[in-house]
Design a protein around this nucleic acid. Sequence first.
DNA 1: GTCTCTGCAAACGTTTTGCAAGTAG
DNA 2: CTACTTGCAAAACGTTTGCAGAGAC
Lengths: 143, 143
Amino acid sequence: MAIHQQLLQQKLSEKGLKATPQRIAILDAIYTLNNHPTAEQITDFVRAAHPTISIGTIYKTLDTFVKKNVIHKVSTPDEVMRYDGILTPHHHLYHTDSNVITDYVNEELDELLKTFFEKHAIEGYEINSVKLNIYGNSNEHPK
Amino acid sequence: MAIHQQLLQQKLSEKGLKATPQRIAILDAIYTLNNHPTAEQITDFVRAAHPTISIGTIYKTLDTFVKKNVIHKVSTPDEVMRYDGILTPHHHLYHTDSNVITDYVNEELDELLKTFFEKHAIEGYEINSVKLNIYGNSNEHPK
DNA sequence: GTCTCTGCAAACGTTTTGCAAGTAG
DNA sequence: CTACTTGCAAAACGTTTGCAGAGAC
């Protein structure tokens, strides 16, 4: 278990959730896998330590976590849901070629957007949050 | 048929696609329904004129259209794919309460974003496009 | 002891597939 | 005429559900 169990247990109790071994393992999986894992990736990870955990439990637990605001659900261009353990506001970089999603945080950008939408209110619409989806590719190893 | 058939036919031929009645009807449906219809909504619309069209055909056709860049596929917070006949760049307003998605176009915003990302290149990453997801609700009829 | 959670298996809705027959170019 | 498209049915896929037994508090 990569993250100290007490911390995970505490996190669950804080939200009024029973700290079962399965839940601790699932939360650990999300934090350890870190990069927006799918339910399947979480299952694979958790099964290493809990071979008998069922998919139903995984989904129910993830659902509970989302409802209790322990994690977020992220929709992706392909039709699989992903889960995100990072709750501070951030944008997403979609790596089109590798299907990887990384986080993008930039306060200056957020400030810019905030100012823009204060000046340009959308008629009849109240903005709750603004998230950028940035599509592109790694250019680390150009051909 | 809401949109003149010749135009639809032409649009298909341009992309090297055979202009079958089914394809014309599906394209018409997307343009007529207009606001990011689901495959189901498209099917319902098309069945009014083509009662025997099969769901398989709808999906295959939509897929072909996306591949040939006749339409775009839009992923949504709930797990249904939607299709978009408007190919000019635009952002999306997610109406959380009603599940409606409307378009948001603002050149000043796009200019702002372009300038921002020119100044703040993301290391190792080449941006292809930037799309805003704006979440919120209508405040037209406040309680 | 109570109330919630787990595991299992069945069901669900959406999307994909394989194939034979049909049709646009 | 030929290659692509259609319709159909079956199946794949990710996810949800119901229920009986197990476990956290």
